[in-house]
């Protein structure tokens, strides 16, 4: 192989790496936010991101240019998380996530009573952030990802259905149920905050 040939062959690889790096940097904040909201803590989020990026880097040849890089990575990160989550929890209920969940929605009422008593406005803001995270952690990973992708990352139902590899109808019902479950935890906070401000 001549030098010219080897350069010609090497160039696309370095171009690919440069492209990958620039795409990561473009979506850096969104990716971190997604992993953090999914895991609930920085340490786990960073481990998840590192492994997710590594998998993406290795299979970047499969990435189709023109498709959304952030959604492709959301999918990799979500799948990694689900895999890890299932190994850790080994809950049989994961198979029936789209079944009616009335019992879950009624169970949550016990926890919310005490949180409305905090009158301090500043403390409430950070506590609301904590409460959002706590609420998200109450959701099963599939619901959590759907809600995060919709409300925090701003994706459409169709985009979410591609990430989660499910129908738009499933996305719609996961988001709707997820929000209703979050409401039980967050609404007292939101109302308290509204009352304190107005």
């Amino acid at each position: 192989m001549t030098v010219a040939q080897s350069v010609a062959r090497a160039k696309p690889i370095s171009d690919q790496i440069a492209l990958f790096e620039s795409m990561v940097l473009t979506h850096e904040k969104a990716l971190y936010q997604f992993a953090y909201r999914l895991c609930g803590n920085h340490h786990e989020a960073q481990d998840l991101l590192q492994e997710g990026l590594y998998r993406a880097y290795k299979s970047f040849a499969k990435f189709e240019t023109g498709t959304a890089f952030d959604r492709w990575l959301y999918q990799i990160i979500h799948n990694l998380y689900i895999d890890h989550y299932r190994k850790r929890k080994r809950r049989p209920s994961v198979t029936s996530i789209d079944e009616p969940i009335q019992h879950l929605e009624t169970e949550k009422t016990v926890e919310i009573a005490d949180w409305t008593l905090n009158p301090e406005n500043q403390a409430m803001r950070s506590e609301l952030g904590d409460q959002i995270q706590r609420g998200l952690e109450e959701l099963s990973p599939e619901y959590r990802t759907a809600v995060i992708l919709c409300d925090i990352q701003g994706l459409s139902y169709e985009e979410i259905s591609q990430v989660l590899n499910c129908s738009i109808g499933t996305v719609r019902s996961r988001i709707h149920r997820g929000r209703k479950m979050l409401r039980r935890l967050l609404l007292p906070y939101i109302q308290e905050k509204g009352a304190a401000q107005g």
Binding site: Y36, Q46, Y57, G129, I132, V147, R179, L182, L187
Partner: peptide
């Protein structure tokens, strides 16, 4: 109000270099 609350939830500061980790 739940959607608004999530949308406006403050961004966590990123002190993590993704490429370095990669």
């Amino acid at each position: 109000s739940i959607k608004n609350c999530l949308e406006n939830s403050c961004q966590e500061p990123v002190d993590f270099n993704l490429l370095e980790a990669l």
